[in-house]
Amino acid sequence: MTKITMIDYGASNIRSAQKAFEHIGAEVHLTKDPDVVRRASKLVLPGVGAFGSGMAGLRQHNLPEAIHESVKRGVPFLGICVGMQLMFSEGHEMGVHRGLDLLPGKVVRFPEKLQIVNGKRLLVNKADELTISHSQLTPNHLKVPHMGWNQLEPAWGNPLLDGVQTGDYAYFVHSYYCDPAEATAILAWTDYGIPFASVVAKDNIYGLQFHPEKSQSIGLTILKNFVEQIH
């Protein structure tokens, strides 16, 4: 049975993430102890809430340094939802906050003026209005937060997404999205008025913007891939 060390820093969805891993046969150890994190063989950072409070919770338990030490020695690391966002250099939610900086990039809010135009989701701004006639605009505004089912578009092959096809659906709840500095870190895209990184990967670091524990068979497939195929 694969052992998963899940970092408990006060994230509200930690129990549901734990149950999802246990459902696919993993043994999950919840911990706030940085020494346990340093000794882990696989690490998971779940998360629901705000970027700043998430980092505050990690720092309160002296976890950032322990996470860096484990990642540096090659331990597979998976961030989920806000846990994925915390992996980046900085977050812009209610101020600018320093992240774990495991991946270069920032976490920014979806633009407010998102619309579907002629069946395509576009950002409508003053520059666009010069080329898009008002007859093309529909009243179908895209709301923030991005909440509900949306499609994944894998960008390149990786064992984490074995069995996942373009167009498969996952369940999202977020107002901020990750903007990686390195395009090669984007493992899958999702479109919500603008394309954004819904899955990221670099070396032994992985992140899911959606909630795999709420994404039915696709979410469980991805978690199982992390448990069984990522070493």
Rank of each mutant, 00 (worst) to 15 (best):
H146F: 02
T190K: 01
F196I: 02
T138L: 12
T190I: 06
T184F: 08
T190L: 04
L161F: 07
Y177F: 14
D191H: 09
P159S: 13
D179H: 12
T190E: 09
N158R: 08
S135R: 11
C178P: 10
E182R: 14
G163M: 11
A155D: 07
L152S: 00
T166F: 00
W149G: 03
Y192I: 02
D191M: 11
Y177I: 11
A181L: 08
F172R: 05
D203N: 15
N158C: 06
V173F: 03
N150R: 05
P145N: 03
P180Y: 03
E182H: 07
F196C: 01
A170V: 15
D179M: 13
L187E: 05
G193F: 01
P145W: 07
A181F: 12
W156H: 13
L161P: 08
G157D: 12
K143N: 15
D191A: 12
K143C: 13
C178N: 07
Y176I: 04
A170S: 13
A197V: 03
D179A: 06
S175K: 09
Y176A: 01
D179P: 03
K202W: 02
L137G: 04
D168F: 00
P139Q: 11
E182I: 09
G148M: 07
I132D: 04
L161W: 00
I132T: 04
T166C: 04
A188K: 02
V144P: 05
G193K: 00
S133L: 08
V200M: 04
F196N: 02
D179L: 10
H146Q: 13
Q151N: 12
G193D: 09
Y171V: 04
Y169H: 14
A185C: 14
K143I: 11
Q151Y: 14
I194K: 04
V164K: 01
L160T: 00
K143S: 04
D168L: 01
L142Q: 01
A170E: 12
Q151P: 11
A183N: 15
Y169Q: 15
A170R: 03
P154V: 11
T190H: 06
A170Y: 01
V200P: 02
G148F: 05
G163Y: 05
T166R: 13
K202G: 03
W189N: 14
A181H: 11
G167N: 11
V173L: 14
Q165V: 12
E182Q: 15
G163C: 12
M147F: 05
P145Y: 02
T184Y: 10
L161V: 04
L160Q: 06
I186A: 01
Q136C: 07
W156D: 13
D191Y: 07
V200A: 07
Y171D: 05
S133C: 09
G148L: 06
E153N: 10
W149M: 08
Y169V: 00
L152V: 02
K143H: 15
S198H: 10
V173S: 03
S175A: 13
T190V: 09
A197Y: 01
G193Y: 01
I194F: 00
K202T: 06
A188W: 00
L137I: 12
K143Y: 10
L160R: 00
A155C: 14
P154A: 10
D191F: 14
Q136W: 02
H134P: 12
S133P: 11
L137A: 04
A201G: 08
H134W: 06
